[in-house]
């Protein structure tokens, strides 16, 4: 219990720290909006005036993109990966290793703080306005909202664990260039962040459902617009939980190996 109080302190500090760098918050919101404009326009043009495509109405598809952009705002609000990689490269990470906390958990809790600040001051006001002025679908039952929030939270955890585990590879490889680009591409496409899985070619969809990425955007988005409904919701959240646990252990494994490596090198 005492331990968690310590981690919450990081959350609180990160929240306050974000409040100081308000320019960052606003600028991030600006670029989030431009990408929303881009994907909104792309899907409007793809539907080209049709009421529905592949059994999904235009309104639902547009909602999917808006929700996805909202979630990607959340997922991008934490400590950027390059900042941690830079600490590895300069050896500053050694100081963190000496302190009595688990470093990946410490960054996760700090992210909760900066994400909370970003949601409250920037994302939520903007997206509430968007939902008022655009023709979008909103879940009718409060239970769907609960499922959506749970799924979005799970998605955040999956993304955090995978991204961090991946970022820690820089402990082993000096240059992660090419692999990193493949990783980010896979994450953006296979998570369904910009194209929902049901529009994929069948073979690609089959691959995507067996990967953890779909839990980040596709599952919460699809729950929100009602494409995943009924008993399927709990099943999908179950899949997410499986991936949260699996990715968490992956992160722990990579972290243990990586910190060991630092000790060997002497930082």
């Amino acid at each position: 219990m005492h331990q968690y109080r310590m981690y919450w302190a990081f959350t609180r500090k990160a929240f306050l720290r974000s409040a100081v760098y308000r320019f960052d918050v606003w600028s991030r919101l600006g670029s989030n909006l431009i990408f929303l404009l881009m994907w909104g326009s792309i899907w409007t043009a793809l539907y080209a005036g049709r009421e529905e495509a592949g059994g999904v109405s235009f309104e639902a598809m547009l909602t999917y993109i808006v929700v996805s952009q909202f979630l990607s705002g959340i997922n991008g609000a934490g400590t950027p990966l390059w900042e941690i990689q830079e600490k590895v490269r300069t050896g500053d990470i050694a100081i963190e290793l000496m302190r009595p906390f688990n470093v990946p958990l410490r960054y996760l809790f700090a992210d909760f703080g900066s994400v909370a600040f970003y949601i409250i001051t920037a994302l939520l006001p903007l997206y509430i306005v968007l939902f008022i002025f655009m023709d979008l679908t909103v879940p009718a039952s409060w239970l769907t909202w609960v499922y959506f929030i749970a799924a979005a939270f799970n998605g955040f955890l999956i993304r955090y664990c995978i991204e961090m585990a991946f970022g820690l590879l820089s402990f082993f490889l000096v240059e992660t260039g090419g692999i990193e680009d493949i990783f980010y591409f896979a994450m953006s496409l296979l998570s369904g962040s910009v194209i929902p899985l049901w529009f994929f070619p069948d073979w690609l969809e089959k691959i995507a459902v067996y990967l953890p990425f779909q839990g980040i955007y596709y599952i919460p988005n699809a729950i929100f617009i009602g494409e995943i409904f009924g008993g399927e919701i709990l099943f999908s959240i179950g899949i997410q939980l499986f991936w949260v646990i699996a990715c968490f252990f992956l992160l722990r494994f990579v972290w243990n190996r990586a910190s060991h490596k630092v000790i060997v090198q002497g930082g």
Binding site: G54, S188, L189, I195, P201
Partner: peptide, 10 residues
């Protein structure tokens, strides 16, 4: 590739 997937059905 994202463009290709996007245009696969459309």
């Amino acid at each position: 590739i994202t463009m290709w997937v996007m245009l696969y059905r459309f």
